[in-house]
């Protein structure tokens, strides 16, 4: 088990011929991920860099011919909304949008248009999702996106985060303390995204392999508070959390489009308090995420 994806998941990559998409597609293949197709309009019929991965013009065709159930989006921002909806239309179960810089209005329309479909969206502006493998350096798992595969270790901790490198930091600490991860999900730093902290907590709670959870949040919005409220009532697994941005001045956007404290809302202090009230172990510094998890487990 694990959540969302595992070593048997068939993945297609939209934007596989771009330099960024191509580089990470290659790394995923090397990690052992079943990358079964690439999609770039106008480049159908070719093969992706001698990997044996066929390239198709449309997602519809790629899904029909390869049975891919997950699509990773590496398409540039102006075309990313269209790419997500193309994957939804082709009926994939999961779309993981890596693209950074998609206009908010595009995401608003995409989310609205997706309502009622059976597809889940993760991201955009996220590092993706990793279910580590059992081989050396966690090889043989499913890596979708841009996370470094080798820092993972197959284990029992579910990781969910809004940020990229801070997630790697947490994954690293979890590997260092020997526990390893069931699945790591980066939900992205944009104000409008597909999957929330709460959604992922629910999945981890139902996953028999996941025994504990690390949740990483940031200033801005109220997603962490909502997740805390849900967890207090429903989650029976220990959770440790970290919230970045305690020192960020109000009104300044800290890199991620969603990371902003405005009108006194979305402060790190308020989020930490909500988490603690829900019985979640809050790490005071990013260096203590692993330690906080051990404390939560008891």
């Amino acid at each position: 088990m694990a959540i969302l994806v595992d070593e048997n998941t068939k993945v297609l990559i939209q934007g596989i011929t771009g330099s960024f998409g191509g580089r990470h597609a290659k790394l995923s293949v090397d990690y052992g991920t079943k990358v079964v197709a690439g999609v770039t309009p106008g480049k159908g019929g070719k093969e992706f860099e001698d990997t044996g991965v066929p390239i198709f013009d449309t997602v519809d065709e790629a899904v029909e011919q390869t049975g891919a159930t997950v699509s990773a989006i590496f398409v540039p921002p102006p075309f990313a909304g269209d790419a997500i909806l193309e994957a939804v239309d082709a009926g994939v179960e999961l779309v993981v949008a890596i693209t950074e810089g998609i206009p908010v209005q595009d995401m608003m329309r995409v989310r609205s248009a997706m309502e009622g479909s059976g597809t889940r969206l993760i991201g955009p502006n996220c590092p993706g999702i990793v279910t580590p493998g059992r081989g050396e350096n966690s090889q043989g798992g499913c890596r979708i996106g841009i996370a470094p595969g080798y820092i993972h270790k197959r284990g029992s901790v579910g990781v969910v985060s809004r940020s990229g490198t801070l997630t790697y930091e947490a994954v690293w600490q979890v590997s260092e303390i020997g526990l390893g991860q069931s699945t790591c999900v980066g939900i992205g730093g944009d104000p409008i995204n597909g999957t929330s902290h709460t959604d992922v907590l629910k999945l981890f709670n139902d996953d028999p392999e996941t025994e504990s959870i690390i949740m990483i949040g940031e200033i801005g919005g109220s997603a962490e508070e909502e997740a805390a409220a849900w967890a207090a009532e429903n989650c029976d697994k220990p959770i440790a959390a970290f919230i970045a941005g305690a020192t960020a001045p109000p009104g300044r956007r800290m890199g991620h489009a969603g990371a902003i404290v405005s009108g006194g809302k979305g402060t790190a202090a308020a989020k930490k308090e909500a988490l603690r009230d829900a019985g979640i172990e809050v790490a005071e510094t990013p260096a203590e995420m692993g330690a906080a998890l051990l404390k939560a487990i008891g």
Binding site: S163, T165, L166, E218, A244, T247, H256, T285, A287
Partner: peptide, 25 residues
């Protein structure tokens, strides 16, 4: 000087935690 927005914010936070003041994000 940090790579990644989340880690950059977290780095500012840990400086403050140890009694320092970050000069920038």
């Amino acid at each position: 000087l940090v790579n990644g927005a989340g880690l950059a914010m977290a780095t500012m936070d840990i400086i403050k935690h140890y009694g320092g003041e970050p000069a920038n994000f």
